[in-house]
Design a protein around this nucleic acid. Structure first.
Lengths: 64, 64
DNA sequence: CCACAATGTAAAGCTCCTTTTACATCACCC
DNA sequence: GGGTGATGTAAAAGGAGCTTTACATTGTGG
């Protein structure tokens, strides 16, 4: 499962730290998600997608 | 976070067991999600939504 | 009444998500 | 060269997701 968080965050001009603060998670969590080290929880995935004005499916791509 | 899994499953005429088998999880997992005892993981949420032909946001509602 | 399918629930156990703390690198600026 | 911001990474700890096994309830059909 990969995702577009890094690109979307870059386009928004935010640091990992700043994005984490907006979403209520640590910068390490943002970093891990961007690198695909693990998938976010469902509520965090929804918050992330909503923050960037996308659907969950647009931001997170299942590799099937 | 509540969801429409029970209604969608009912409309599809499937038991919790049958839905679990289609999605590769146990019936207890389906049961717990329907009752809101916990949220599914992101990959399972995406599989559930896709199975019912909906987006994740249509099936899972954040209570904000 | 006796199966049987469907559902609810609980415990134990494993893996995954997230946090905090901490250190390390790299680039940029003064 | 020293400070600062952004990023990568690691360890420990706690909580959440999911499994298996097991038992209990309910409704339905023979």
């Amino acid at each position: 499962m990969d995702n577009d968080v890094r690109e979307l965050r870059g386009a928004a001009g935010l640091s990992q730290q700043a994005l984490g603060e907006r979403l209520g998670v640590s910068r390490q969590t943002i970093n891990a998600i961007e690198q695909g080290r693990y998938d976010p929880s469902l509520p965090l995935a929804i918050r992330l997608a909503r923050f960037f004005g996308r659907t969950v499916e647009e931001v997170f791509h299942c590799d099937d």
